[in-house]
Design a protein around this nucleic acid. Structure first.
Ligand SMILES: [Mn+2]
Ligand SMILES: [Mn+2]
Ligand SMILES: [Zn+2]
Ligand SMILES: [Zn+2]
Lengths: 138, 138
DNA sequence: CCCTTAATGAAAAGTTTTTTCAACTACAGT
DNA sequence: ACTGTAGTTGAAAAAACTTTTCATTAAGGG
């Protein structure tokens, strides 16, 4: 049983055909998918999947930190699977392929300086990189 | 004549009452405003301002880098005025007050390492911090 | 196998954003 | 100033997106 399903069960959520369909789609993608795209792909394995359930499942998976939402110029609802622990997304602006990376110490240093300069107490951040993946560079 | 208006003229765009209204609202805010909020405030000075024009003016100002879009859990269409040059937004999660900060060298270092690790050629980034402003810490 | 109750999906409602198009007006040229 | 033209506007309609409702289904513990 996949990690995600374990997490759902552990938190008292039921494993349903609809949720499995959504999870299967997300686990298989390397490109951010919109709710509508997830619906379309999900229906290939679970015919009666509904869009409402896609939204609900995405909210749930996001809450459990199984997926992350990607923000782009042309839409802020691209969903990607994400590894456990803190990481950020790097998206190819050509083909959409996503990679993950860690925030290392640089960010902590930057944040410390920003706190110093502004007086704000920083407790969250949104960091996303974009560029060209190896394939799209040629 | 304000900086923004100069920039509009310079690029061949006309200075209209509607655009002035939207710009006035944006120049005066320290909190990200949604198109609808901009419409409401803008109508206080230009009665017949329409929502469509708010959207169009925002797209224009964003293109000219006079305003930036802020992404949040509860909506990715908050608009803020932004200073010339490269900077990022820092938002108070309590009262919404925004501050700007520069990306310094830390980010370059981080990006270099990410390029090294992933093979991607990074050419853009989205960075936003959030936390509590000085007032909201007490 | 029941039973309880979480979960689902169709439809409706509510929102947000874009497209259309006739009317308007900023402003360059006279 | 006056005029012509092309950029701009706003109402309305269309399209797209997201949430709510509610009767029905089915997961999974007992
Ligand atoms: Mn981070
Ligand atoms: Mn930057
Ligand atoms: Zn690529
Ligand atoms: Zn505050």
């Amino acid at each position: 049983m996949s990690n995600w399903k374990k997490r759902l069960s552990a938190e008292g959520f039921r494993i349903t055909a609809s949720r499995r369909a959504v999870m299967d789609v997300l686990l298989a993608t390397s490109v951010p998918l919109s709710p509508r795209e997830i619906l379309e792909q999900g229906r290939r394995v679970h015919r009666k999947l509904g869009l409402v359930t896609v939204y609900r499942t995405l909210a749930l998976l996001e809450h459990l930190r199984c997926v992350r939402r990607v923000h782009r110029e042309d839409g802020c609802r691209g969903y990607l699977p994400c590894s456990p622990g803190h990481s950020h997304a790097l998206i190819c602006r050509q083909c959409g392929r996503a990679a993950e990376f860690q925030g290392f110490a640089d960010l902590q240093a930057l944040i410390a300086r920003v706190e110093e300069a502004t007086g704000y107490q920083v407790d969250d951040h949104l960091l996303q990189l974009s560029g060209l993946c190896l394939d799209c560079q040629s």
